[in-house]
Design a binder for these strands. Sequence first.
DNA 1: CGTGTTTGCGAAAGATTCTTGCGCAGCGGG
DNA 2: CCCGCTGCGCAAGAATCTTTCGCAAACACG
Lengths: 163, 163
Amino acid sequence: MPIKADLDAIDWKILRELQRDGRMTNVELSRRVGISAPPCLRRVKRLEETGIIRGYRALLNAPALGMDVVAFCLIGLHHQADAELKAFAERTRSWPIVRDAWMVSGESDFLLHCVTRDLSTFQSFVIEELTSTPNVDTVRTALTIRQVKDEGLVEISALNQTQ
Amino acid sequence: MPIKADLDAIDWKILRELQRDGRMTNVELSRRVGISAPPCLRRVKRLEETGIIRGYRALLNAPALGMDVVAFCLIGLHHQADAELKAFAERTRSWPIVRDAWMVSGESDFLLHCVTRDLSTFQSFVIEELTSTPNVDTVRTALTIRQVKDEGLVEISALNQTQ
DNA sequence: CGTGTTTGCGAAAGATTCTTGCGCAGCGGG
DNA sequence: CCCGCTGCGCAAGAATCTTTCGCAAACACG
């Protein structure tokens, strides 16, 4: 899976542009990276097929859609055997409130990124779902005030583009 | 900003589809939501112009691009006056390692989502940048083992689509 | 009830983009 | 030197995008 594909400067430019605007037309993309459309499309498809581009996603405005609460939950389990970790991971997938989740090492075992309509919905989730889930030991929550940075997942620097 | 736009069932379907595949053609999208292409395109543009769709982004495979470490940092500051919060928020934007960041309430003041090439790069960042930043009190880190869930930001349920 | 307004759908057509096939140039190995 | 490999770009047909326009349904109002 972690295939360190060898990408040239043009590939890095493509990734940077598509990370900023994933719906750009191939013609526009080809102009920005400095090649013609057909080889540009071939490169994009290759990046998609090799899994370097995992997909494309529209970014939505949660408050405008009536989702006013974004919060993170740090979960500590009583037992961290493989079966228990998998069981909790599976459970996170069944909670629509949890938008993405990570298994982590450190003081906690899981980090949950939650989005809900309002505070009482979130509180109900924590009390009635999270803390009452078997094997859950500690639940620490952090309500977000606002997002202060939002770049794509991967940094694409001038260094990458020229090496 | 939090304009609770009134969306009908078709709008919700559009949001769901574009959150799953933001690069879908308008013709394909119109087929999936059950209307013809022109009104579908008008709806998408309206969603973009009203800010409900904030943009589109390619999702990249970080390990395949040589970024093997994903971690979260919980930052506590000594002083939480408005000026200090803004100063730290601004500083997070200058760190390329920090991909997105949230101001939070709870035990910590900021949550940082970090992606680096390797562990030593991350450790250097924590020691040489984070802990040595003025006004930083506590730094707790959580190294991710793996992502166990990755949906879009907003839940789009059957309930939304029919109301 | 009738009329005017508003709203949104869908057909049609031209412009743009996508996609494929093919020829050509640069490069490294035999 | 020649050959195979790789990747670019031109060209052409297919698909899509985008605008324009007519139409029908919903609604307000007299």
